[in-house]
């Protein structure tokens, strides 16, 4: 891994399901970026504050702090609002999706998702 590469971005993956988290970590690492993981909302906010990522892959339904709140926090915080937020959620209702975009998400991806398309989308969003 060439951590020093200029093109390398920081990606935060947030999900409470260990297998999904594991898969996303693998995929993002494979895309050649720096990957951080959070197993719940609290961890995620912690990482965002201390180690500002370029992009967040964000689950919505989490026990402590849900994905919407995290997104809202990011977009309302001056220093953070340029973080690209991508929702990954099993909530597939129109209203849920709309809410996600309204909060400033760049993308809302339904679970289960295609790993290939996810990779493409992430690369696109990061301008890679």
């Amino acid at each position: 891994m060439n951590a020093g590469s200029i093109n390398m971005k920081k990606i935060l993956v947030v999900d409470d399901d260990p297998y999904i988290l594991m898969s996303l970590e693998f995929l993002m690492k494979k895309s050649g970026n720096e990957v951080m993981i959070a197993r719940n909302g609290t961890e995620a906010l912690d990482i965002i504050a201390n180690n500002k990522p370029d992009l967040v892959l964000l689950d919505i339904m989490m026990p402590d702090v849900d994905g919407y709140s995290i997104c809202k926090h990011i977009k309302q915080t001056k220093e953070l609002k340029d973080i690209i937020v991508v929702f990954l959620s099993a909530k597939t209702h129109e209203a849920d999706i709309e809410k996600g975009y309204k909060l400033g998400a760049a993308k809302y991806i339904n679970k289960p998702f295609s790993t290939r398309e996810l990779m493409k989308d992430v690369k696109e969003l990061l301008g890679q």
Binding site: Y19, L24, F26, A90, T92
Partner: peptide, 24 residues
Amino acid sequence: YTVTHELRTPLTSIRALSEIVYDN
């Protein structure tokens, strides 16, 4: 809705994991 949500979660990992195994 809750049921499908709950079903989507394992499905997501199954799909992702199998695609990873296949693609790598």
